[in-house]
């Protein structure tokens, strides 16, 4: 991975309204333990990541958005490869962040992803 590497994040269907995603897309849940799962865009394309997530893992997703490693680092967030789950698995690390600081980082990543646009949308081709 390098700063230009895209990190693909799956979008739950309920996390989109009127074409806009929620900042919860890049928010931790308790089981994340401070490490947000993404797909390493150097190893897998967005549509392949979607197929893996929905078919292999069996989770719902309406598409894929992405942030870059550089964008994470600019926010003070480190990124690591974590192939123990599956080879393309990576994590954005939010260690030590809580409350408003955590929400701001999540929002900043969401804005970056939204500005980049959909990398893959289920049922559509993305130009």
């Amino acid at each position: 991975m390098n700063d230009a590497t895209l990190l693909h994040r799956q979008i739950h269907p309920d996390f989109v309204q009127a074409g806009t995603i929620t900042s919860q897309v890049f928010r931790l849940t308790p089981k994340d333990k401070g490490r947000l799962s993404v797909y390493d865009g150097d190893q897998i394309t967005a549509d392949e990541a979607w197929r893996h997530y929905t078919s292999e893992l069996g989770y719902p997703s309406c598409g894929v958005m992405a942030v870059s490693v550089g964008e994470c680092k600019a926010l003070g967030l480190s990124v690591e490869s974590d192939p123990a789950r599956y080879p393309e698995h990576a994590v954005i690390i939010f260690e030590g962040l809580r409350g408003s600081a955590l929400k701001r980082k999540s929002d900043a990543l969401t804005v970056a992803a939204d500005n980049r646009g959909w990398q893959y949308r289920a049922g559509e081709s993305v130009a």
Partner: peptide, 12 residues
Amino acid sequence: PRLYPTFEGGVQ
């Protein structure tokens, strides 16, 4: 607002 479910069973 835009409305979304939360992991904890609320609404954001």
